[in-house]
Design a protein around this nucleic acid. Structure first.
Lengths: 229, 229
DNA sequence: CCGCGCCTGTGGTCTAACCACACTCTAGGG
DNA sequence: CCCTAGAGTGTGGTTAGACCACAGGCGCGG
């Protein structure tokens, strides 16, 4: 076993045993290196991996923002991993879109009508209704709206996966707008579809919401010229 | 931006531009460090992250197995990320199981009856029917059977996510068997359910297959005493 | 012609030093 | 007495240079 993996396992063990929890701090790199009888280099490699996985955050200086503290940001890890694999062209974008439809339909049909996330979603829709909103701003709000819907279903894994799927194709989706024949017309349609989806969820009609979400997403990509299997 | 991120972006750029593809080799660490005008340490930190993400594999010595070569193993990345976050107890196991049901039902209903993966799945079932098979061997085959079903749907993202979900709770699932009142009886039931699922897929009855898969998984966890939302 | 070592280049690890940063303490002046 | 400017301390960030184990390739000797 390589040295940094030893450090990794030690930290994972501390997490599993509850000796290290979200918000807690790892020992300083030099201290940890001495404790585990390895070099600081190896400790740092392990911490880098944990950082990339969204498990810790490293901060310089001193004070509350400093040191290596345990966080929990699964979305970051999954997102960058997916993005990299999309770059290797071993994860087709069409598969990502298809998975997104699957997850998001499920979330829509399981979203709780009275969840606070839906209130946030409604606020986002109001912002998107503003006149003369820029395309990029609209898309940013759109992402947040869809994530809010996913969160409303109350499944952390589905939320994280949804977020990571979106993150991994953000650049791609934004380039897609160039393919649209008439952005303004599309924006009008997207707005009304958003409202329909939200209404369906609030009326506790999960099945309809799921159908609407699926056709909403697939319709967008079809209009932008993406093939679906 | 930190130094290792610069290296990371450079490599990701090479991947996106197609100058680096699966099977290709990265320049040697010392060479890359000189090219990018950074220290070898920083290069190594970037490579460690890519390795953890399942994007490269590092091998010592010389020959075909040596050097840092580009691979594509999204499952590894997602799996270890999920496992770590489960360790932080910010991803409830019940959410993972629920997501697994969602993905696997979808896969069962979209699996192509004539796909080669199903032949492999059938072979796995035959192995599981062997008399006196050890519990751990049975479970290992079970994992492979379910993954084969997921692969049969032909969506790389769903396959990777399924694999990572299974990996992240392997240890957990194996501990669960201790909760079962009568393993032998359970094993008999699981075997017959597996055959039913496979038959449904082969008869092109995706809807039935999805239902069977869902109750198969949920039934197992219920019997082992796991609560579902 | 074959086989045994040396050579080379790879990643793996370690040490030791320096930097930038941000808080904390302290000594000095008002 | 209070406030402020400075030194002090501990954090991660980065670098240079050295050594190790490994595995294939090459050349020399049998």
């Amino acid at each position: 076993m390589r040295t940094h993996q030893l450090v990794l396992h030690w930290i994972e063990g501390q997490l599993s045993e509850g000796k290290l929890a979200v918000g807690g701090r790892l020992p300083a790199e030099r201290t940890l290196a001495e404790q585990l009888q390895v070099s600081r280099t190896s400790v740092r490699e392990a911490i880098r991996i944990l950082e990339a996985m969204g498990v810790v955050r490293a901060g310089v200086g001193s004070g509350p923002e400093a040191g290596t503290v345990v966080i929990s940001d699964p979305t970051a890890a999954l997102g960058s991993a997916l993005r990299l694999h999309v770059a290797t062209q071993h994860l087709p974008v069409s598969d990502i879109v298809q998975t997104r439809v699957l997850l998001e339909s499920w979330a829509a049909s399981h979203a709780r009508p009275d969840s606070p996330e839906l209130t946030g979603a409604a606020r986002l829709l109001a912002e998107m209704d503003a006149d003369g909103i820029a395309v990029d701003d609209f898309l940013a709000l759109d992402v947040r709206f869809h994530l809010a819907l996913a969160d409303a279903a109350g499944n952390a894994v589905v939320s994280a996966m949804m977020g990571s799927l979106r993150e991994s194709i953000t650049g791609y989706a934004s380039r897609l707008t160039a393919n649209l024949p008439d952005w303004d017309a599309t924006a009008v349609r997207l707005r009304s579809e958003h409202h329909e989806i939200l209404d369906a969820i609030r009326n506790d009609d999960g099945e309809r919401a799921a159908r609407l979400v699926a056709s909403h997403i697939e319709g967008y990509y079809r209009e932008a010229g993406v093939r679906h299997p």
